[in-house]
Amino acid sequence: MSVFSVFARLVGQLADLLQPLFHASAAAAAIVLFTALVRLLVHPLSRAAARGQRARAALQPRIAELREKHAEDPQRLQRAVLELHAEERVSPLSGCLPSLLQLPAFFLLYHLFSSSTIGGEGNGLLSHQLFAAPLGGRWADALGGGGLFGPAGLVYLGLFAVVAVIATFNFLRTKRMTAAGSVAAGAGGGEQIPGLGAVGKVMPFMSFFTLVTVAVVPLAAALYVVTSTAWSAVERAALYR
């Protein structure tokens, strides 16, 4: 039995459990519940990433000294900063791990609701809906079927509205954090790690890219993305306050 068959059975069983409460949208509720379970599993890593960020902030005075010492040798400065992180066992990329570990779950959902057959049999999950929108459909299908304000189109407009609110919240919060980090880095006359300045300018806008993802992936995968993004917003606000 393939991993997709096992996963399809898991989603189907969760949908059966939730059917008395959510009726025709039980499979959609099962995806939201599955997403919450995945996020609970990776939550310890998110807490570790928050501790890593605090540890990196604590290194700022020493990094400022390195900037002054190697002001005329950017390559030596970069090596010294990386060596300092290694010495203190602080990874500049530790915050990426929770997101990377969620990718398999997302791609499982994407494949499950993009395939007409699973394990050589018909994919019954494609018959499930979120209100009037099929979980295996995309925004383009909703536009072609009933237009922007058709029954399925309204489901997507609701999702876009939720994502826009979350993205705006993340944008404002990230701008504040980036500004605070820039002030701390600027006190030493440079960046914490050379080359990250451009990344810092783009980061506040990353949440809005979720709108594109929701528009192009199957609705089931879009539900995963929206639920996970909402979880991340609340989680990061709590861990990084």
Rank of each mutant, 00 (worst) to 15 (best):
H23T: 12
L93G: 06
F160S: 05
L125R: 02
L239M: 12
A164V: 13
L109F: 05
C96K: 07
A132P: 00
S232M: 13
T168P: 01
P20V: 08
T174V: 15
A161H: 07
V32K: 03
E72V: 13
R39H: 05
V214D: 06
L100H: 05
D16M: 09
P218E: 05
E191R: 12
V3S: 14
L109P: 00
G122R: 13
A185V: 03
G137Y: 01
V165D: 02
L41E: 01
H111K: 12
R138Q: 11
V216G: 04
V6P: 01
L130T: 02
A49D: 01
A8N: 07
R79Y: 09
A50C: 09
M206R: 07
L143P: 00
R241Y: 12
R241T: 15
F107R: 03
A30D: 01
P98A: 11
A86E: 08
T213R: 06
S207I: 08
G197N: 07
V202E: 00
H111S: 13
R236H: 10
D16S: 14
L154A: 09
R79N: 09
V90M: 03
G122K: 07
G181L: 14
Q19H: 13
F22D: 00
P44H: 02
A161W: 04
D16T: 12
S232Y: 14
Q53A: 11
G137V: 04
A86V: 09
T117Q: 15
L126E: 02
L45V: 10
P61H: 02
P134E: 00
H128K: 04
G137M: 03
V226T: 12
F22H: 05
H70W: 15
I166T: 12
K175V: 13
T117P: 01
G122I: 09
R241G: 15
V225E: 06
L18Y: 00
G158P: 00
P74Q: 11
D73L: 13
R176L: 11
Y156I: 08
H111G: 14
L172Q: 13
K201N: 14
L196S: 14
A58H: 03
E88D: 05
F205N: 03
I118F: 02
V234H: 07
E65V: 12
H43T: 10
H111E: 13
E191S: 15
A215N: 04
V226I: 13
L126I: 09
S2W: 06
H85P: 00
A221R: 01
A71C: 12
T213F: 15
T117D: 10
R9P: 00
A132V: 02
D73G: 11
L14F: 06
T178I: 15
Q102F: 08
I166P: 00
A222D: 00
Q129H: 13
M1I: 13
A179E: 12
E83K: 14
A64R: 10
A80E: 07
F113W: 05
S46F: 10
W139E: 00
S99D: 08
A179F: 07
A184I: 09
A8Q: 12
S94E: 10
G145L: 08
V162D: 01
L59P: 01
I63P: 00
L126M: 11
A238M: 15
F171M: 14
P61F: 03
A220F: 03
M177N: 12
T168W: 15
R39S: 06
A180P: 05
D141F: 07
V202W: 08
R67F: 08
F149V: 06
Q129V: 10
F7V: 07
A48K: 13
G119F: 10
L219V: 04
S91M: 04
